[in-house]
Simulated scan of single mutants.
Amino acid sequence: MISSLTSKYKLKGMTENEIIDLLGEPAEKLTEPSRQFLYYIGSAGLGVKVNLLQLHFDEDGKVESHDIIYK
Rank of each mutant, 00 (worst) to 15 (best):
E25K: 03
H66S: 12
S65E: 13
I68E: 15
G61E: 12
T6H: 00
L23G: 10
M14K: 12
L30K: 15
S43I: 07
G47V: 03
N51Y: 14
D21Y: 00
K29F: 07
D60G: 03
Y40H: 11
S3I: 01
S65L: 10
M14T: 01
F37G: 00
E16V: 09
F37Y: 10
A27V: 10
D58G: 06
M1A: 14
K10F: 06
D58M: 09
E18Q: 15
F57Q: 06
E18F: 02
A27Q: 12
A44I: 07
M14N: 04
I2M: 13
Q54Y: 02
L30P: 02
Q36I: 04
E25S: 06
V50S: 14
E59H: 02
N51P: 02
E32K: 05
S3H: 13
E59K: 05
L53M: 05
G24H: 07
K71H: 09
E28V: 13
F57T: 05
A27D: 15
L38Y: 09
I41M: 12
F57E: 02
L30Q: 14
G61Y: 05
L38G: 01
I19A: 02
A27H: 12
G13D: 11
L30Y: 11
S43Y: 06
K71T: 10
D60M: 07
L11R: 01
S3T: 13
S7F: 03
K71D: 14
D21I: 01
K29H: 04
K29W: 03
G13A: 08
L23D: 13
E25L: 08
L46A: 11
S4A: 10
H56N: 15
F37C: 01
S4Y: 08
T15H: 01
P26Q: 07
A44Y: 05
K12M: 07
Y39F: 14
E64V: 04
L11C: 05
Y39D: 08
Y40E: 15
E18S: 06
N51H: 14
G13N: 14
S3M: 10
I19K: 00
R35Q: 11
R35C: 00
Y39E: 05
K10D: 15
Y40D: 12
I41V: 15
I68P: 07
M14P: 00
E16F: 00
K12E: 15
D58K: 01
L52R: 05
L5Y: 03
G61P: 05
D21C: 04
G45N: 08
M1G: 14
H66W: 15
M1D: 13
H56C: 07
I68T: 14
L53N: 03
L5R: 01
S43F: 03
G61S: 11
G61Q: 10
T15S: 15
D60H: 08
